[in-house]
Design a binder for these strands. Structure first.
Lengths: 150, 150
DNA sequence: GATGATTATTAGCCTATGCTAACTTTTTGC
DNA sequence: GCAAAAAGTTAGCATAGGCTAATAATCATC
């Protein structure tokens, strides 16, 4: 060991710092796609239930105003997740549908897991909404296995 | 039941829509404080470990640049969570310390819970970082109880 | 104690995500 | 088929949270 073992001079410290940074960077990345995922998931659901996804219904369910929805839909369209025509409903692209399916899958697993822990449905739904964007594949597998055997 | 039971015209539907919106609003609220919580938690840790929290160390651990840290610290100071003097280290206010403690507590419980599920430490740390901001008190209690009896 | 390296700040830019106000288009109901 | 209501859009504003480039202050070393 070298003579400078004061504030984080060791290799191990440096590695710890870097791995921590990577964790935060990962979380920030997840955060960036959260809104898109929430919208796409909701759009898929509305199409399934009502045959179409109207901005006004999206706004009501997301708890935001219509202009906010319009702007977000613009980003989703730019990113190739939806298609839309002016003053018309929204449709998912192939890519959007795939993302929606994946999100729904994650959401379901997290929700079932929380319920199987004994959480009340209301709280489970709320927490699942926030948690689903932050569970790794590995964690998701554990959640699924746990809910299964309960 | 009234004659219009087509697209969400029932009371039950309306309640479901509203409760969904509330869930999303809650998630957005949680998102707004995530960064502040991460910083405060990290600052507390740095002070504990190194005796002081320097912007350069915060930046390294958060995986962001120094100007980003400066701007965020400005917000934390504005919000009464930290105090600082120009070109000096950062200190937590009473309020900041309380928040840090609460965050650390939540983080610990989520982390221990994930570990007790059998997750590897690396992934557990990453996921805990993202999940900790989105667990209700109720869920946290269940997590704690589960980790306890494992 | 001067000077080079490190650290911190400032200025200025960008994107995402929210809002309100004002306007346009579509839908609905007589 | 027209007028009012509902839905959608646009413009413009704000905040958070990133960045780079440039500047300023502090620290460490000789």
């Amino acid at each position: 060991m070298t003579d400078d073992e004061n504030l984080e001079s060791t290799e191990a410290e440096a590695r710890a710092v870097e791995s921590r940074a990577e964790a935060f960077i990962g979380v920030r990345e997840a955060r960036r796609s959260e809104v898109a995922e929430d919208y796409v998931e909701l759009i898929a659901e509305l199409i399934h239930e009502n045959g179409e996804a109207r901005p006004v219904d999206i706004a009501a369910r997301m708890g935001v105003t219509a202009p906010t929805v319009a702007k977000t839909l613009g980003r989703l369209a730019r990113d190739g997740l939806i298609t839309r025509a002016k003053y018309r409903s929204v449709f998912l692209t192939e890519e959007g549908r795939a993302l929606a399916k994946e999100c729904r899958h994650r959401h379901e697993i997290v929700l079932r897991f929380l319920l199987s822990l004994g959480l009340d449905p209301e709280t489970a739904e709320r927490d699942a909404e926030g948690i689903e964007h932050h569970v790794s594949e590995r964690t998701l597998a554990l959640f699924a296995a746990f809910a299964q055997r309960s």
